[in-house]
């Protein structure tokens, strides 16, 4: 019992969660009770959907020991191509066909990353930096991208459909919980199963810990990386697709630049930048923290122009604290060892 309590206290997830609670209470207090209202909570959940799905994909790559900075460009290209194609053929059907198409394009672009990182064993960060540029170029050059103010009816309907509507009893403001939240939940559950309950997922952790040993243990390192990048491409494309549906317009560039905050959230949640360590729970909590800070500064009375300063400070302090935490854990582990050694004498 005591051991499990200690385990909880020793984990980054616990500190991120505590930080979330403290921050929310602070906002609640400063904003005169505006944080813990039904509509605000639904707003935050709704704002978490797209970054949350992106974070799941990013998390996988970081656990494998690499960095993916191409996912916003990958998502933009996939969803732009899909939307434009659907508009060109005057598509008026449901959500399924565009969704399948965007996932297929995402898989293809992910395979591009995966081929270079997996089979040619190139550094993931370098490959995805290049890929990011290539994807952007294709979108702007070959597809001649500009803002699409109208999106196909099926996508629009999906973006506006609500699971339920929450009302603020004081102000009467309402917020809709988008249907897309279910997609986010589904992606998280699937990713959790994949990472923790299949040997493909354990292989991602294994190769993030020690690639040479992973090979020696019998994991197919190259194929694991390749398939992982395909999956990450599919996940990112879905995130981009949902964003377009929810915004009800397709803007080719407004997802670009999101990668830094997403990666920061994942690292904040305890994923080791050296690879091999971290949990999906931490990844979601870290992302939630970033989303909450971005969305709630206004409730604290902080001008939105200062938002990036706060988000930046949070990243530096947050990752700093978790790094300290790891250091302390290592030290106490080595101390415990010396003590048992002395006890054995």
């Amino acid at each position: 019992m005591q051991k499990s309590i200690k385990k909880i206290f020793g984990r980054t997830e616990f500190y991120v969660f505590a930080l979330l609670v403290v921050l929310s209470v602070l906002i609640q207090f400063r904003s005169g009770g505006q944080f813990y209202t039904a509509n605000n909570l639904v707003d935050i959940a709704s704002a978490l959907i797209v970054p949350g799905i992106f974070a799941v994909g990013t998390f996988m790559v970081i656990v494998s020991g690499g960095f993916d900075v191409s996912f916003p460009a990958l998502a933009s290209l996939s969803v732009y191509a899909t939307t434009k194609f659907m508009l060109n053929i005057d598509y008026s059907g449901g959500i399924l066909l565009p969704l399948l198409m965007v996932i297929a394009i995402g898989a293809l672009l992910g395979a591009f990353n995966g081929f270079f990182v997996g089979y040619l064993n190139l550094n993931a960060m370098i490959v995805t930096l290049g890929a990011s540029s290539v994807f952007k170029g294709i979108m702007q050059g070959a597809l001649n991208s500009k803002q699409l103010a109208v999106i196909p009816e099926g996508m629009r309907a999906f973006g506006t459909s609500a699971l339920f509507t929450a009302t603020n009893s004081q102000s009467g403001l309402t917020s809709r919980m988008p249907m897309a939240f279910l997609v986010f939940v589904a992606v998280v559950i699937l990713a959790w199963f994949l990472l923790n309950r299949t040997y493909f997922g354990r292989g991602i952790y294994a190769l993030g810990g020690n690639p040479a040993s992973a090979k020696a243990a019998g994991f197919n390192v190259k194929r694991t990386k390749f398939i992982m990048f395909i999956l990450v491409g599919m996940i990112s494309a879905v995130a981009g697709f949902i964003r377009v549906c929810m915004m009800q317009q397709c803007h080719p560039t407004n997802m670009l630049g999101m990668e830094m905050n997403i990666i920061a959230g994942v690292v904040l949640g305890g994923a080791a930048i050296t690879g091999g360590a971290g949990t999906l729970l931490g990844c979601i909590l870290g992302t939630l923290l970033i989303v909450m800070v971005e969305n709630s500064m206004i409730l604290l009375g902080v001008p939105t122009t200062w938002k990036s300063v706060f988000v930046g400070a949070l990243i530096v302090i947050g990752t700093g604290v978790s790094a300290l935490q790891v250091l302390r854990a290592n030290r106490s582990a080595s101390r415990a060892r010396t003590m048992t050694k002395e006890g054995a004498k």
Partner: peptide, 20 residues
């Protein structure tokens, strides 16, 4: 030793057999 520092003792021991 070709071990995975980031994984548990159990996983380190069982991977080879399970993958084989």
């Amino acid at each position: 030793f070709s071990v995975f520092p980031n994984l548990t003792v159990m996983e380190n021991l069982a991977f080879n057999t399970e993958l084989a």
